[in-house]
Structures are given as structure tokens and as C-alpha cells.
Computed example of a mutant assay.
Amino acid sequence: MTTKHKIISTLYMGIASGILLGLLLKLVEFVSQIRVYTLLLNVDFIPFIGQIEWSEPIEFLFHVIVSICIAYVFIYLAELLHFKKSLLKLWLLSFILCLPTLGLYFILSVSAIKEVPAWNDWLAFTYWTIAHLIYAWVLPLLYLKTIKKEKY
């Protein structure tokens, strides 16, 4: 992948998958009233950043930036490990990269100042997990789409 194509692919994959994850959790929160979307965007516990009252679009932007970073690492590792043609290996890589987000649920729940689900709210954790597994499933599909476009 050329450098220009890698940058475009990273941005595309990170933005698309990040928006999907955010909208999915926003829908879950709207329907269930369980604040998993609020938890996803929450930065109130981070020194300095948490002291500022950010708008929802800015908090969402922070989330998308993290997603872009994950996409970058995914592309880097997929190419390093020569996984380009194996969807199964790409899914495994994506799952491994996204696995820490499941444990992050507990850290974010305990650290949050805003009202978010409790660390032991298993329904909220289930929603969080399903949404992040969907994210991990979509990331390789977007990657395969970007490497197909490179050929044309």
C-alpha cells in the first residue's frame, strides 16, 4: 500500500468504523436508557481534558480519533504479518486489537464522574461487548474494501 493510500485507508476505516460504533451505542442508549453511549464518549476523568465541558460532537471526535489510531495499528500489523488475503486472520487480528476495549468498560465505569453504567451492570457490559465485537468484525471488511480499491 502506498503511503498516500495508507493514510486515506486509515482515515476511511477509522472514521467509518468509529461512527458505526458510536451510532450503534447511541441507538442502544436511546432504546434502553442504559448510558453506554455516554460511557463511550466520556472523558471527564482525564486530567485537564476532563475539566472542560466538551460538546457531544467534540467528545465524538475524540472517539473517532481513537478509532483512527486503532485502524492505523490494524493496517500496520495486517501488512507486517502479511494477512492481506486471509479474512479469518484479519478478523483474529481485529478481535485481538479490540479485546482491551472489553476490559476498558470496567475502568471507564469506575473512573467516570458522569452518570454511566455501574461496573457490574452486566446488561450494559453485554451491549458494550456486542457493539465492540461488531466494530472488530467491520474493521477487516473495510480493510479488504480499501485494498481492492488500490488495485484500480
Rank of each mutant, 00 (worst) to 15 (best):
residue 13 M to A: 07
residue 13 M to R: 08
residue 13 M to F: 00
residue 13 M to E: 07
residue 13 M to G: 13
residue 14 G to N: 09
residue 14 G to R: 00
residue 14 G to D: 02
residue 14 G to F: 01
residue 14 G to T: 00
residue 15 I to R: 02
residue 15 I to T: 13
residue 15 I to A: 00
residue 15 I to Q: 04
residue 16 A to Q: 09
residue 16 A to K: 04
residue 16 A to H: 06
residue 16 A to L: 15
residue 16 A to C: 15
residue 16 A to M: 14
residue 17 S to G: 04
residue 17 S to H: 03
residue 17 S to K: 02
residue 18 G to D: 05
residue 19 I to Q: 03
residue 19 I to R: 00
residue 19 I to E: 03
residue 19 I to T: 11
residue 20 L to Q: 07
residue 21 L to H: 08
residue 21 L to P: 00
residue 22 G to A: 14
residue 23 L to Y: 06
residue 23 L to K: 07
residue 23 L to A: 03
residue 23 L to P: 02
residue 23 L to Q: 09
residue 23 L to W: 05
residue 24 L to T: 14
residue 24 L to K: 04
residue 24 L to H: 03
residue 24 L to F: 07
residue 25 L to P: 03
residue 25 L to C: 01
residue 25 L to F: 00
residue 25 L to I: 00
residue 25 L to T: 11
residue 26 K to Q: 12
residue 26 K to V: 01
residue 26 K to M: 13
residue 27 L to I: 14
residue 27 L to R: 04
residue 27 L to T: 13
residue 27 L to P: 01
residue 27 L to W: 06
residue 28 V to S: 11
residue 28 V to I: 15
residue 28 V to H: 06
residue 28 V to Q: 08
residue 28 V to E: 10
residue 28 V to D: 06
residue 28 V to A: 14
residue 29 E to R: 12
residue 29 E to T: 11
residue 29 E to G: 12
residue 29 E to D: 10
residue 30 F to T: 15
residue 30 F to K: 14
residue 30 F to N: 08
residue 30 F to E: 12
residue 30 F to D: 10
residue 30 F to Y: 13
residue 31 V to W: 08
residue 31 V to Y: 08
residue 32 S to G: 02
residue 32 S to D: 06
residue 32 S to Y: 05
residue 33 Q to I: 00
residue 33 Q to C: 06
residue 33 Q to L: 09
residue 33 Q to T: 08
residue 33 Q to Y: 10
residue 34 I to K: 15
residue 35 R to N: 11
residue 35 R to A: 05
residue 36 V to D: 06
residue 36 V to A: 06
residue 36 V to L: 05
residue 36 V to T: 14
residue 36 V to C: 12
residue 37 Y to W: 14
residue 38 T to Q: 13
residue 38 T to R: 04
residue 38 T to D: 13
residue 39 L to N: 07
residue 39 L to Q: 13
residue 39 L to V: 06
residue 40 L to E: 12
residue 40 L to V: 03
residue 40 L to D: 08
residue 40 L to M: 15
residue 40 L to T: 10
residue 40 L to F: 10
residue 41 L to Q: 09
residue 41 L to V: 15
residue 42 N to F: 04
residue 42 N to Q: 08
